[in-house]
Design a protein around this nucleic acid. Structure first.
Length: 570
RNA sequence: CGGGGCAUGGCGCAGCCUGGUUAGCGCGCUUGCUUCGGGAGCAAGAGGUCGGGGGUUCAAAUCCCCCUGCCCCGACCA
């Protein structure tokens, strides 16, 4: 590729609407352009990166035994109605009608479409297992698209679905995909972590998310360096604390204190004296509405409720915070001073409350708190549940070692679905024993466009992007410093051709521009290796610069190809 | 959905509060000359329905109303 002929519109300034590095850099370096909120044009450089990402995915999926298909993006409503998701997924779907007034949606995911295909064609256990995947556009009408490619309304995804005759075989494939995904992200040169995750809207039995570690990630995860436990904080379990020995003996007399206008945990702590009453000594009480019924949720003052875990505890019914009016109505107590004592609604307490002794809680009346409250003695806990968000430093639920907390970008998610869709859609087969059974399913997704953004988020500096060579738009750029000098041009062209012949992805910056201008572009775009052909060309010497480390080597022209090979292949 | 902000040439912005005659700046773009190892200099140019509609006024980018688009924030006080 010749830079002078390439469509690579770079710019000095970031667009005003870009917030995070990947968004700014992908726009500035000419990989993408915004068309509308959550919709992007992908320019040639972007396409090159996406094709490389897709190639790695295809190779590994095929190697793992999966087969590629292409299903329509336009989904007939009937299938979604059949699975019961037409209304559930509802607002996230772009829906429309054809000229005959039939309902359709642009596919946000394809369980229904694939299940429909397989149920029609597969009737015997002999045809199982089957793992089919596709790489294509997906549409989700996000409440709030943001961060460029990270949360777009139209994006490219690889989605795979597997069908099995038994639960064991589905589980075997699940781990097969786990290994496959690990290889895929390793090959892409990304730092990632596979974590146990909540199954979310897709449903199913258990799942893992593949998170690219980056500070701008929307997801949080914790992991244990010692035993390898790793989980999304939406799922991470707390180690259940022991009930302190002889706790009753430590109980002190209840004491009511005047705390005018002091509501927040932090304020209470400050007011009563931080040293004696840190947030860990204060009880936080919240009221949630679970399927219309109010429940009180107690957590230690320094902890946050993780709503996804809360939903799990209440088996995924509708769970939401109570409004101020509801709080007053159901508890008869003023907000800000809620007390577990004498509460008319059941109290569920987080594990973090178990070791608490002689703590502070609201008094149930305006401007008062109570000291030396103890669960069991002063109020009844209906059940101790694991609903607080796990934080870095907390003990690992498996081995007790302190957990590490990081932020990450979810680029892949694998689910063991079970028979949720096959039962709803009647996807059955006849087993060896002659009986008709629902197929056991799994599904496995990778956000292809998101991987591109995540890779940038993890690999950039003040000068621009630093692509891992495996997914870089070009592996090498040849930069003749001055296209008016014959010996420079000749040398550069020669190296360019040799690299092409050797099979490298190479671009030559043949533009009549000043050297500094070209260097800036090369750095911005993030091409891993730059070959600078300058003054020493006439002595047969050129310079190779490594984008990531900034290292520079002077190399004789005839050794360039070998040196590049050595650098890229390690 | 609720709250806030923005919309002026391809990009980034000023002007608007306190209406007034050619709407400005930087970058980019075109042409020429010079320059050529970290986003060059000089000179000459091109390019704008000031998001759209309506209103107030002798006069609107500027004031008022409506619409659209885009961006940011939004449980944890109970």
């Amino acid at each position: 590729m010749r830079f002078s002929r390439a469509f690579i519109p770079t710019m000095k300034e970031s667009p005003a609407d870009a917030e995070i590095p990947s968004h700014k850099l992908l726009v500035r370096a000419g990989f993408i352009r915004k068309k509308a909120s959550g919709l992007y044009d992908i320019l040639p450089l972007g396409v090159r990166v996406l094709l490389k990402i897709e190639r790695i995915i295809r190779e590994e999926m095929n190697r793992a035994g999966a087969q590629e298909v292409i299903l329509p993006i336009m989904h007939p409503a009937e299938l979604w109605v059949e699975s019961g998701r037409w209304d559930v997924y509802g607002k996230e779907m772009i829906k429309f009608k054809d000229r005959h007034e039939r309902d359709y949606a642009l596919g946000p995911t394809a369980e229904e479409m694939i299940t429909d295909l397989v149920r029609k064609e597969v009737k015997s256990y002999k045809d199982l297992p089957l793992n089919l995947y596709q790489i294509g556009r997906k549409f989700r009408d996000e409440i709030r698209p943001r961060f460029g490619l990270m949360r777009a309304r139209e994006f490219i995804m690889k989605d795979a679905y597997s069908f099995h005759a038994s639960d064991e075989d589905a589980e075997r494939e699940y781990w097969n995909m786990y290994e496959t995904y690990s290889r895929i992200f390793e090959r892409m040169g990304l730092v990632f972590k596979a974590v146990e995750a909540d199954t979310g809207e897709i449903g199913g039995k258990f799942s893992h998310e593949f998170m690219v570690i980056a500070d701008t990630g929307e997801g949080k995860l914790v992991y244990c360096e010692k035993c390898g436990y790793a989980a999304s904080t939406e799922k991470a379990e707390q180690r259940k604390p022991e009930i302190p020995e002889n706790r009753e003996e430590k109980f002190k007399e209840i004491e009511k204190v005047h705390t005018p206008g002091v509501k927040r945990i932090e304020e209470v702590s400050e007011f009563l004296g931080r040293d004696e009453f840190p947030p860990e000594k204060i009880l936080k009480l919240l009221v949630y509405i679970v399927d219309g019924e109010p429940v009180a949720i107690a957590v230690r003052g320094d902890r946050e409720v993780e709503e996804t875990k809360l939903k799990q505890v209440f088996r995924r019914k509708e769970v939401r915070l109570a409004t101020d009016e509801e709080i007053e109505k159901f508890t008869g107590q003023p907000k800000g001073f809620l007390s577990p004592i004498g509460l008319r609604i059941p109290v569920y307490a987080d594990y973090s409350v178990i070791p608490m002794v002689n703590f502070v809680a609201g008094a149930g009346e305006e401007d008062y708190h109570i000291k030396n409250v103890n669960w069991g003695r002063d109020f009844k806990v209906k059940e101790f549940v694991d609903i607080a968000e796990v934080k870095g430093g907390d003990p690992c639920p498996k081995c007790g070692a302190p957990l590490t907390e990081k932020r990450g970008i979810e680029v892949g998610h694998i689910f063991k679905l079970g028979t949720k869709y096959s039962e709803a859609m009647n996807a059955t087969f006849v087993d060896e024993d002659g009986k008709e059974k629902p197929m056991v399913m799994g599904c496995y997704g990778i956000g292809v466009t998101r991987v591109m953004a995540a890779a940038v988020e993890q690999n950039y500096d003040e000068n621009g992007i630093i692509w891992p060579v495996e997914i870089a738009p070009f592996e090498v750029i040849v930069i003749p410093v001055n296209v008016k000098k014959e010996e420079i041009v000749e040398t550069a062209e020669r190296i360019y051709k040799e690299l092409l012949i050797a099979g490298f992805d190479v671009i030559i910056d043949d533009r009549n521009a000043r050297p500094g201008f070209k260097f800036k572009d090369a750095d911005l775009i993030g091409i891993p290796y730059q070959i600078v052909v300058g003054k020493k060309a006439k002595e047969g010497i050129v310079e190779i610069k490594v984008r990531k480390s900034g290292e520079r080597f002077e190399v004789p022209v005839e050794k360039v190809v070998n040196k590049v090979k050595e650098l890229i292949e390690g």
